[in-house]
Design a binder for these strands. Sequence first.
RNA 1: GGCCCCGUGGUGUAACGGUUAGCACGCCAGGUUUUCAACCUGGAAGCGCGGGUUCGACUCCCGCCGGGGCUACCA
Length: 472
Amino acid sequence: MSTSESDLRVRFAPSPTGALHIGGARTALYNWLAARHSGGELVLRIEDTDLERSTPENVGQILDALRWLGLDWDEGPISQVGRAEAHSAALEQLLESGAAYRDSATADDVKAWKAEHGVDRGYRGSPSADGVGAVRLRVPDDGDTVVDDLIRGEVRFPNRSYDDFVIARGDGSVLYNFAVAVDDADMGITEVIRGDDHLSNTPKQLLVFEALGTDPPRYAHVPLLHGPDGKKLSKRHGAASVQELRDAGYLPEAIRNYIALLGWGPGDDETLLSTEDLVSRFRPEDVGKSSAVFDEKKLRWMNGRYMRDMPLDEYRTAVRAFVEAETSGRPLNESRFEFGCEIVQEKAQTLQEVWPLIRFLFEPPVQDEKAWRKVMKADADRVLTEVEAALFEVAASEDGPNADGFTSVAVETALEPLPEKLELGAGKVFQPIRVAITGTTISPGIFESVAALGREETLARIEIARLKLSSD
RNA sequence: GGCCCCGUGGUGUAACGGUUAGCACGCCAGGUUUUCAACCUGGAAGCGCGGGUUCGACUCCCGCCGGGGCUACCA
């Protein structure tokens, strides 16, 4: 828990109606960065007043996603439902003061009223005689409610275009715009950083603050994220939730770096920014105004950069979880795994891509027929015969991955002269080996791959390939 | 429909009343290379449109067009 070095208090307030989306994750990140940058505090509040859609599973999922992303909070999670008493008290206060009233008008009544008064005219009701009905807040007829937004500047909303909006249902349970304002007030939130979709709601919340007699926080509305088709980001756009990104093999730090850049830039040409950099350089007022499109291609590239920069032991730990999922926990040759990670680190862009590249170390190769036809041509048998002879000469004191005597370097020393000796291009010599031992044309470096597989297994697979060759 | 927001290459961003409009991803070509990736070099690609204001506008103003949000007794 950080000691408070500033008065800044922000909150992240997701509604648990599903997984945490990349857009929500970015909002969380911006709040977190703002808090950590200034030494302020971040409160996590769960907006669960929609009992139909808010489930404990969803709450757990969001908390997991935040933790996995490395975003911690100083207070909470606080359930909005758990604050029902505070909400009722505030509601009573407004009913007492006359700032709000009970109105029995139905949706149809409101529609009829508007038909009569004009579409740009907000509904104005009157207290029901019997004191039943939903609770509405009185909205002034004149003037503007002004949102002084950190990102948008001053935005004016004409009061007359807003309905006397419902702040509590007939049964007394409160609605979103009311609960949010009461909670932000009670929690002493000083700055609200949230999605643009709430900009139009802000006047309502401001009106609640005014009725309550409390100073409102400052607002910073960040632009929404869109999918590649320009539409609002949704589950249809592939890996759109944090959970899916995690399953696809992305690293938390890469995601933090990438989504921070969606709508914000450090001001210079830096692209790769550590979380430390982000914390020191991020300011909500520097967030741009236009919506951004989530582009997985760039995330992939960035993730690859982070994967290559990882310390090897950390890399192995991250990869292991993915490999275990692929092999359903079947024990693997540990030294092959360790060496496999080492030789594959330069190649994969996501954790998910690692297994296909090192799979040949643990299982017989699955022959890709296209690769076979492309590589196993006329010279192949002659080449493989030479390769066998050359590898046979390499003395290995034991048979294991990168074993003493049969190291990448030793293998390279043995194979490297072959192209010249056979008067063939390097590809003509090395590709058949690759296909013989891995089944495909794509693998880690050939010398490393051979060393990782070990002498005996390599020779055995080459022999199998030669047999297949003779039967072609 | 009403209220509100946004509009720099395919994507994310930078600059700004006066620059050859920069950087990154992606794309294309070439190089390197044992494949892929990485790496190196080069290239195509942008200020939504129309009016103003100004000596000068991507930048300021207006209109339009396009995209988005809100408009529930949802959040």
